[in-house]
Design a protein around this nucleic acid. Structure first.
Lengths: 278, 278
DNA sequence: CGCCACGTTGAATTCAGTCAAAGAGCGTGG
DNA sequence: CCACGCTCTTTGACTGAATTCAACGTGGCG
C-alpha cells in the first residue's frame, strides 16, 4: 500500500493537505491518484480575481465556464420581483459554481461575490473530459454534489420547520463544518465576513431579527464574535437549538461505497490513473 | 424514421406517448432511440406495490435500489426531533426516488407513500450500467436531476421569501406543470390527493392556515376543488401571487446543449444506441 | 349507524416584521 | 488628526401575519 508511493513522489502528496482546496475537499470523498491531483491542479491553474459585491454571473446569462472558488466567499442567490433577495448557498474555497448548471440554457439565479475572490475558470470541456477519463475525480465530484444537495434539503428543513433561533444556529454549524472540511477553521473559530442583512437573506429573516437572535446567543454564551471571526463557544447548545442529531453532511461516510462505484466506472476505461492508497 | 418502427413494434413507440412515465419525462430532455426506450422499459419491468401511508424507505436505512414511481403519489420527507415533519418533494409518476442517494451510506430522509403506488425497483447495477453504455439516457437523467435541483432551489425561495399565499400559489403551479410534463393533466385540472396537513408540512405552514388560504383562493375564483381534483381557474393570478416570471422548470430548454453533451459522451463508447430523430 | 380522519371556523396569542432613530466602525479627504 | 459620509449594527415601540387552541362540521367506510 505504501510501496507504490515512494517512487513517484518527490514531495509526499498523499497525506499532507493540498494547496488546491478542491483537491482537499474531494479527498474526503475518494482517494485520488497523484495523476488525478496533477490533473486537478492543471485544470485550476488559471486564475481570475473579482472584487467584493459584484456578480460573477447573473440570472439569465449563459455560463461558459465552471468556476472553482480558491479564496474568498461568494453566494448563489435570486432576486425577487418585489426587491427581496434569497441567498441559497454560500460558496467557500473548494466549491464549484456551478458543476451542473453549466448544462442549462441559462442561469435561473445569480452568483455574486461577498468578499474579493480568486477563482479558477474551468471550461466545459475540462469538466466533460473528466467524466470520460477520470473516474475517481468524477465519482468524487458526484459525491460532492450529493452533499450539496443534502445541504439544500437541510436548508429547506431549516426554512420550513425551524424558528429564527434554530435557523441561525443551524447555519452557524453548517458553515463551521464546511470550513473545517477545507481546513479553514482554528478550533471552533472561523472567518465569517457576512453582514446581518446577508444572513437574513439566507435565513428568511429580517436583519433586525437576525441581530436580536445573535445578541441573545452572545448573552447565552453560545457564540462570540469579533473582527468578523465567529467563535462557536457551545456547539452542542447550538445543535440542540437547531434540533438535529447526526452528521447529515455525510462527511463521515466511509469511501467503501464510492470506491465500489468508481471501480465499476473504471471498467473499460483506459487505466492511466493508478490510485495511491488512502 | 418510421421505417424502423414497423417491424420491431406492435404498437408504435416512436412518437406516441410511452406507457412508461419515465420515458415520457426523459423525452423532454433528450431524444431516445428505440433501443434506449426498450432498455428503459426493461429496467422498469418489475413492479412492486405499496399501500398508502407507508414508508418505502426510512431515514437511516441503506437504499439497495432506486425506485421508479409508475403510479400514485409519494413524498420525500424528514421527521424532526420535536415531532414536526418537513416534506421536501412530492414524487409523481416518472420520478425516480432516488437517483443519487443510492450512493450514500444511509438515507438522511424518508420516502413515504401518500396514495397506493406502483413502483419499479431498479437495482444499482442497472443505473450504473446506464452510465457506461447509454449516454443519451444518462444525459437525460442528469438533465432531469438538474431540474429537480432547480425545484429544490425554488422551494428554498418559496419558504424564505414568499408569504403563505405565495407559497400555496407556487406549489399549485409547480404541481400542475409537473403533472402536465407526464401527461396527467386535463386542461388546468389534475388530481391532488394531498391533505391540508401534508400541504402545510411542505409549505412550512400549519394546516389551519393552509385551509384559510385555500378558502380565500376559492372565494377569489383562483381555484376550485372537488373530489380531490384541483382546478386552476386563474393561473396568471396565481403566478402573480407567487411572484415569478419565467419557466424556471427549464422544460422549454432546447435540447441543443444536452445534445452536444451526450455527443461528447458518445465518443469512445460502443455505438449500439442509434437515436431516432426528434 | 357511528367512527374517524379531515376540513372549517373563531378567538386569543406570539413570533417575527416594520418603522424609526441612534451608535459604532471605517475609509477618505481636508 | 479630525471631520465627514458611508454602511453596518443595535435598540425600542408598534404592527401584523401566522400559530395555537378549541370547537364544530362533514364525508367516507366498515
Amino acid at each position: 500500500m505504501v510501496r507504490a508511493a515512494e517512487h513517484r513522489d518527490q514531495k509526499p502528496t498523499t497525506h499532507p493537505p493540498s494547496d488546491n482546496p478542491l483537491t482537499r475537499k474531494l479527498l474526503h470523498f475518494a482517494p485520488l491518484s497523484n495523476s488525478d491531483r496533477q490533473h486537478l491542479d492543471h485544470l485550476a491553474a488559471r486564475e481570475e480575481r473579482f472584487p467584493a459585491n459584484v456578480d460573477i454571473i447573473g440570472e439569465g446569462m449563459v455560463p461558459r465556464s465552471v468556476f472553482l472558488l480558491k479564496e474568498g466567499m461568494a453566494m448563489r442567490y435570486r432576486n425577487m420581483p418585489d426587491g427581496g433577495r434569497q441567498i441559497m448557498t454560500f460558496l467557500i474555497p473548494g466549491d464549484l459554481c456551478d458543476m451542473h448548471v453549466f448544462l442549462l440554457k441559462e442561469m435561473d439565479h445569480s452568483i455574486g461575490t461577498i468578499t474579493p475572490v480568486r477563482v479558477a475558470p474551468i471550461p466545459r470541456e475540462g469538466i466533460m473530459g473528466l467524466f470520460g477519463s477520470r473516474p475517481r475525480i468524477s465519482a468524487a465530484l458526484w459525491w460532492s454534489s450529493l452533499q450539496e444537495e443534502a445541504m439544500l434539503r437541510e436548508r429547506i428543513v431549516s426554512l420550513g420547520r425551524r424558528d429564527a433561533r434554530g435557523r441561525v444556529a443551524y447555519l452557524l454549524c453548517e458553515l463551521m463544518w464546511r470550513h473545517a472540511a477545507v481546513g479553514l477553521t482554528d478550533g471552533n473559530v472561523f472567518r465569517l465576513p457576512l453582514t446581518q442583512t446577508e444572513l437574513g437573506d439566507t435565513l428568511g429573516l429580517t436583519p433586525v431579527h437576525v441581530n436580536r437572535v445573535l445578541k441573545e446567543f452572545r448573552q447565552r454564551d453560545l457564540i462570540s464574535m469579533e473582527h468578523r471571526m465567529m467563535n462557536l463557544l457551545d456547539i452542542e447548545g447550538l445543535k440542540v437549538l437547531a434540533g438535529f442529531n447526526k452528521d447529515y453532511l455525510h462527511l463521515s461516510s466511509t469511501p467503501t461505497e464510492v470506491t465500489r462505484y468508481f471501480d465499476v466506472l473504471e471498467e473499460g476505461q483506459r487505466s492511466d490513473a493508478r490510485p495511491t492508497n488512502e
